[in-house]
């Protein structure tokens, strides 16, 4: 199965948009070729409106107000970072629904440089009342999450990855707002999202060599947070590490930490964040090189555990 969600999300859009005539797709001059099947079958519900993201967001809000369910699509840095105000006011304040399918979240487009990175796309959308943020690491997850959320009348961000984790999750339920206990453990909770399910799984053997039994909690939904699952896990382990391709400011680690400190019964739980950090990422290179440099590695997971706990 092709798990490059940037390439496969268009099949889901075609499938959903074929039976739901309210689905209206607007792209900002990317994925135009991949969406041609939908475009040809539904010319009145497909628009490639060029590179004017702020106006595309406002226009999509008007379309939503007219009774349609918009899907808008381009790089996260342009559709979210650049167009935050439009998302906040035209959709958020008006309580109108939209599905934002972005590419380039985090540093996925590593060769493109800072202009095409987005470290806070999740944070920005999260901050809007009633929104959801999904970070599917495979086509299967995108399919499940999109189909169960696209018509919920809310702002839904889907970070469409080009870096799938390639882990088979077909035996797990993929539901909005729900995480997955991929592996039970007792010594350390690893909370991960997107590609880093792979990184977490790859670390299991090294942890076992050191007699550390890790629990792996995978979170394809960033907002709403699966608080019950998090609580259950850290109640058992007392320790956690969060791995995410988001900024250290306001990312998943921040949400988990805020939740934990609000719970008296979780007093004493300690954690660490492995994230994109706080600064611009000036380096190019491959996605894997970014991961190595930023500490998304088994070695760093293990040393983080030893140093902190």
């Amino acid at each position: 199965m092709n798990n490059n969600v940037r390439e496969t999300f268009t099949d889901t859009i075609h499938e959903v948009g074929t039976f739901d005539k309210k689905l209206c797709v607007i792209v900002s001059d990317i994925s135009h070729f991949r969406l041609q099947k939908f475009a040809k079958e539904n010319p009145d519900r497909y628009y490639n409106l060029g590179v004017c993201e702020n106006s595309i967001v406002n226009l999509a809000a008007g379309i939503s107000y007219a009774g349609f369910i918009p899907v808008i699509h381009t790089f996260a840095s342009f559709m979210i970072d650049r167009s935050y105000e439009q998302l906040k006011l035209s959709f958020g304040y008006h309580k109108l629904g939209v599905n934002i399918v972005t590419i380039g979240s985090g540093v996925e487009y590593s060769y493109h440089g800072v202009t095409h990175h987005s470290y806070i796309d999740g944070l920005l959308v999260k901050s809007i009342e009633g929104s959801s943020v999904f970070n599917p690491g495979s086509t299967h997850e995108f399919n499940k999450l999109f189909k169960s959320s696209y018509n919920n009348g809310c702002i839904n961000l889907f970070r469409a990855t080009t870096k799938p984790h390639e882990i088979d999750l077909s035996n797990f339920s993929i539901l909005p707002g729900k995480g997955i206990t991929y592996k039970q453990g007792s010594d350390l909770s690893i909370f991960c999202t997107g590609y880093h399910l792979r990184t977490a799984i790859e670390s299991i053997k090294e942890f076992e060599k050191n007699n550390i039994n890790v629990e792996i909690i995978y979170l394809p939904t960033i907002k709403p947070l699966d608080k019950n699952l998090i609580k259950k896990s850290v109640s058992k382990t007392g320790k956690y590490i969060v791995m995410e391709h988001q900024s250290e400011y306001g990312g998943l680690a921040s949400d988990i930490s805020n939740y934990i400190i609000s719970k008296k019964e979780l007093k004493g739980v300690i954690g660490k964040s492995i994230s994109l950090g706080k600064n611009f990422i000036h380096e190019y290179g491959t996605f894997d090189q970014h991961n190595s440099r930023l500490g998304f590695t088994t070695d760093n997971l293990l040393s983080s555990y030893k140093n902190i706990f």
């Binding site: 628009y47 406002n58 008007g62 107000y65 009774g67 006011l89 304040y93």
Partner: peptide, 22 residues
């Protein structure tokens, strides 16, 4: 539409016009 942030109401109006036409 709630307005006040200049330059946004017109875009909302465009989308509404397009939606009505569809």
């Amino acid at each position: 539409a709630s307005t006040g942030s200049l330059g946004n109401g017109i875009g909302f109006a465009l989308g509404l016009s397009l939606g009505l036409k569809i």
